[in-house]
Amino acid sequence: MNSTPIAPTLSDRFWRLANPKIFMGWSSKLLPWIAAAALASLCSGLIWGYFFTSDDMRQGSTVKIIYLHVPAALMAINGYLLMFVGALVWLIRRQHVSVLAAKAAAPVGMVMTLIALATGAIWGQPMWGTYWVWDPRLTSFLILFLFYVGYIALWAAIEDEDTAADLTSVLAIVGAVFAMLSRYAVLFWNQGLHQGTTVTMADGAKQENISDAFFQPLLLSMAGFGLLFLTLLLIGTRTEVRARRLKVLQARERIE
């Protein structure tokens, strides 16, 4: 491929970044910077949020949970989106790195979903008087969690790596369609049950209440969660690339 005299186009250059060897190169250079940025923004955002914000009039100090809850929820959804894109790129362009990135994203996304669910439940107890309500948002997150579990389980169950990559990608794409569908289904379901409960009102109030004083640290911790996700994604993908190479070498050794 390198011997072709034609100058590489921009898209060639972009896809070359996904070549495993080149990926290992640039990711190892980039990783310390992203990790440092993640740590810095996460720490400053959370410390700002925890120590230096005032309490909300209605929610008291529980408003501080928002600095964990919202970023985690954001990354839970973006994680699935990323898996979807990774799966598509793998099925269309057969870029190993992309499917390995999807594989590495799944456990992090699952943990983010768990954090969002757990902090939501802890916040809900004093605010709504219960840990869990079958509110549309909560329910969709529970379903999202199940999708993550299924995806990870399918990866673990299939021995052959390429087959596993293909099948999990098909699952991720079908799952994304059904996750969207579930989102709307759940909305319909709960509205049908009881319209305009205190739950949705509290939810709405939460949105209106975000003033700048709350918003700035929130933005910072959102960036922190995002960068942390990226850091773990890069680490995980690098691990998977190496693990893949390890398998190949071991197989070769057995033949020799």
């Binding site: 925890y50 992090v108 768990l114 757990a118 802890i122 004093p126």
Partner: peptide, 28 residues
């Protein structure tokens, strides 16, 4: 900071979340 009557909720959610992030990062 004075967390008032919700100290337990706020602190536990911070501890739990940071622990979860720590565990997944450690595993990776």
């Amino acid at each position: 900071p004075d967390l008032g009557k919700y100290a337990l909720e706020v602190n536990s959610s911070y501890v739990l979340s940071l622990m979860a992030l720590g565990v997944i990062a450690g595993l990776y």
